[in-house]
Nucleic acid binder design. Sequence first.
DNA 1: AGAATTTCCGCAAAGGTTTGCTGTGGAAAT
DNA 2: ATTTCCACAGCAAACCTTTGCGGAAATTCT
Lengths: 328, 328
Amino acid sequence: MTNTTLKKISEILGISVSTVSRALKHHPDISVKTREKVIELARTLDYEPNANAVQLRTKNSKLLGLMVPTISNYFYETFIAAVEEDARKNGYAVMILQSGNDPLIESENLKLFRQNRVSGVFVCLSSNTKDLSSFEKMFDLEIPVVFFDNVPQESGVHKICLADEKSAQLAAELILQHPYQSILAIFGNPALSITKKREAALKNAFQAHPHISLLIEHANSSEEAKLVCHEMLNKHLPDIIFCMSDEVLIGVLKTIQEKGLRYPDNIALLTISNGTIPRLFHPQITYIETSGEKLGKAAFAHMLNCMQTKIEPTELLVDAVLFNGGSL
Amino acid sequence: MTNTTLKKISEILGISVSTVSRALKHHPDISVKTREKVIELARTLDYEPNANAVQLRTKNSKLLGLMVPTISNYFYETFIAAVEEDARKNGYAVMILQSGNDPLIESENLKLFRQNRVSGVFVCLSSNTKDLSSFEKMFDLEIPVVFFDNVPQESGVHKICLADEKSAQLAAELILQHPYQSILAIFGNPALSITKKREAALKNAFQAHPHISLLIEHANSSEEAKLVCHEMLNKHLPDIIFCMSDEVLIGVLKTIQEKGLRYPDNIALLTISNGTIPRLFHPQITYIETSGEKLGKAAFAHMLNCMQTKIEPTELLVDAVLFNGGSL
DNA sequence: AGAATTTCCGCAAAGGTTTGCTGTGGAAAT
DNA sequence: ATTTCCACAGCAAACCTTTGCGGAAATTCT
């Protein structure tokens, strides 16, 4: 079977292509009689506009780009799911690409987005990206770019983040409500904006409490976190371990389980997470919620704004809330 | 900045558009001198072909569609990641849509795929889809459809599945190697092809062992699985619980933890999973591996075949292997 | 030198849609 | 009965690229 086009409909009905096109979009120039004839036939022939032709002509696609380091991640997947859902409801489709944390692939992917004429892109920066040079062309072409989660330091771009500072502050407050004296805080890749923000905020919060020992470590993966944690626990058992993310938490949990430690009895746990992992365990692990879903919804709404009216680049924050499990 | 097109290049160089087009693809009709001039200018102007125009003209897009009930799922996310990665390496981009297990949205999404002229689609059927009527048009238009994971019963379509029967058999064999006498097996949504296959295979394997009690239950979500498990354990403590999937496993684990049971001492556990969840716990949970990654790679390879040469629709299986944790 | 190739490039159409402009017929206004 | 106006529909260009075909100039062969 071959595809039905405006031309085919117009030939069958013996009218012009433009009349068919207009009838289909209820243009007032077309009489009701003609319009109904056209719509009727279009339905029976199951006409579906060729998006390529439409976009070529109108220069305005219903495609959005979305790039993450990897799709396979507790946080990104919920973000993606949320964006896709809202996009669908608004008639947009989403083209998803992974950078694998490789700036080269990131750049290639941006090119792919451009070639496919996306109307906007969501980007979580690769952890190895040093500058925004590969994004220049997007800005030049005025394709809205909304950065999320791991965002560039530069101002003048659209950023939408979790309340990184606040979530670390919340964590600090919660810790201070307990009589913990020694804290082990394990963060992720120090190159990430979220790492920097969370680390700075946590450090800052404890500055006024010099009697509390705050030990900070970094780990780029769950495996590293596990090793680091093992190492640290061998030296000294802290009162509480703070994990910056699910990746870290997973490593820490493995260590704790392997060592036969029990929380909250032997050691307390606190993490920042979207909740999936913390809720798997019993007792559930107390976490500061960073919802990929909320972030996704906010990002899409912001994108819609960007595409409709040129708005000033800003940094938006999605609030953080505490979920009380039973790990401290 | 406006986009560079073939026309713009041709005007600057004072040659025709067709020459530019041919030069850029190393057509033998074009002299080396002209070709190099063109390529040089194209590079400095950072020419990027308009995919819409190309596709419109060639009727052959570098876009693939992928539909799953939800992206946010331990299994699908790895599948998607694998497909995207291989697609990228082969110059394809992936358009991802979620059906939310709603046949209506599923149908709408197929339409979106068609309108965007994808060259092929991967589909994991929604659990509520009763027939393949909404796919008819895809077949008519000869757009390759590769079903995966939850596939239709019909033959004559491309299906690529985990070795559902074999994985259940493997599970049965493993169980029979131990002196377990009572088994609680919890399966997922009975409407899914994977549920049916796994359940049938498991039942079948135990037919020859009537002295072993095999109790079968169903649960559509982790929460249901948790409830079902609670209920069952209140009546009777089985020797082992077999979980069909991660969803089920999560519910079961919660129940077990809440009840203060310890595996493998009080009860044994066995599941089918891609490994993410089972490896989070200590001891790790023994599982039959169903790798979304392997499935994704196989699916993409198959899709490539479908697009190049019309091959006979077949059912491909991705093998299942045992991962020995410490839960039985 | 004249004929036969070869080399290189341009013309124009096609793909499906959208849209500004033009043109027609008929009804209303004068 | 002439003019004015409106409702309706078609023409043609444009978006950008690809490609069959034809043709001019340069080269090679008698």
